[in-house]
């Protein structure tokens, strides 16, 4: 690969990294897993003056669950760490379902969840998952830290709301208030292909009644779709064949797919509906098993 010339920096602390980003004045790009940035450099779609490689900053490769149930994922936590995570399997079924279908095994070894969110690709899986979960991003800049809900974090295709001197250091999934359920289904033409359609559903229930629901859709819009209407319709009652079908229809309506070489808009809407129903049917089964 022959990218344009750029200055390469490998800071050893967050402060140093943020100072470099400040010096870069908007012409610097952060390198974490590099699974999106490096192909863009190769194709010269991105020609930053500086690449700030954060891989030498210690203490960012964690993912953990706090005593209250909050899940925290550091900026250098790789997809593969999440795929193999006992924490997710025990605490977070939507993330546990998504982790093994992110890209392909080679990308998963290097790529990061936080980097994927920052990249803001409408075909990225994690953004849908985090939107369904009501997750947020912790950004650190020269003036300290702030928390940004993932639903507000993505401004448009490949655009996030970070200031040029801000670094996303952590993704946070808030502590659940009920029993956690959910799943992620992805239609891809081949392992490693971008999603034709991805559906993330995260539910919290109490005595079989849904008290929180989130549905995120991958690949069916200019940005990740937050299917609010579909999610809202599930809240306040149990999952029934009727409510499931209704949620599927609402999610399909909420999708804004375009016909392309991955399929027609009609087909993609149909897959959204089918996957919503399949995930929720699966949830019903697992709730019945648990009961």
């Amino acid at each position: 690969m022959y990218p344009s010339r750029f200055r390469y920096e490998a800071p050893r602390s967050l402060e140093e990294a943020i100072e470099l980003l400040r010096l870069g004045g908007g012409e610097a790009k952060v390198l974490a897993g590099g699974q999106s940035l490096v192909p863009m450099l190769k194709l010269r779609f991105a020609s930053p003056e500086m690449v700030v490689d954060i891989n030498n900053i210690a203490g960012l490769d964690y993912h953990r669950v706090d005593p209250d149930g909050t899940i925290r994922i550091g900026a250098l936590c790789r997809h593969a760490d999440l795929e193999n995570s006992a924490i997710l399997h025990a605490h977070q079924p939507t993330m546990a379902a998504a982790a093994p279908v992110i890209a392909d095994p080679i990308v998963r070894n290097r790529g990061t969840l936080v980097g994927s969110l920052c990249h803001a690709d409408p075909q990225g899986d994690w953004a849908s998952v985090m939107i369904a979960l009501g997750g947020s991003i912790i950004a650190q800049g020269p003036n300290g830290r702030r928390s940004i809900p993932v639903a507000d974090f993505v401004k448009g295709p490949f655009q996030n709301v970070l200031a040029f001197d801000e670094l996303a250091i952590e993704a946070v999934v808030p502590a659940p208030k009920g029993v956690v359920n959910g799943g992620y289904l992805k239609l891809e033409r081949r392992v490693g292909d971008f999603a034709t359609v991805g559906v993330a559903i995260a539910l919290e229930s109490s005595s079989g009644v849904i008290i929180r629901a989130g549905i995120g859709l991958t690949g069916v819009g200019g940005t990740t779709i937050n299917a609010i209407e579909a999610a809202k319709a599930l809240i306040g009652g149990p999952l029934t064949a009727e409510s499931i079908a209704n949620a599927g229809d609402l999610a399909a309506q909420g999708a804004q797919p375009r016909t392309d070489h991955r399929g027609s808009a009609t087909y993609k809407r149909h897959i959204v509906r089918t996957f919503v129903v399949r995930i929720l049917d699966g949830v019903v089964e697992s709730m019945e098993r648990a009961a």
Partner: peptide, 27 residues
Amino acid sequence: LLSDRVYEALTKRRDVSGMPPMRTDDV
């Protein structure tokens, strides 16, 4: 035989074949 072609054939009960370019059947 991409899944969308198979699905289209099945639901419309007709062949999915012929000249490209990239299909834009129902934008």
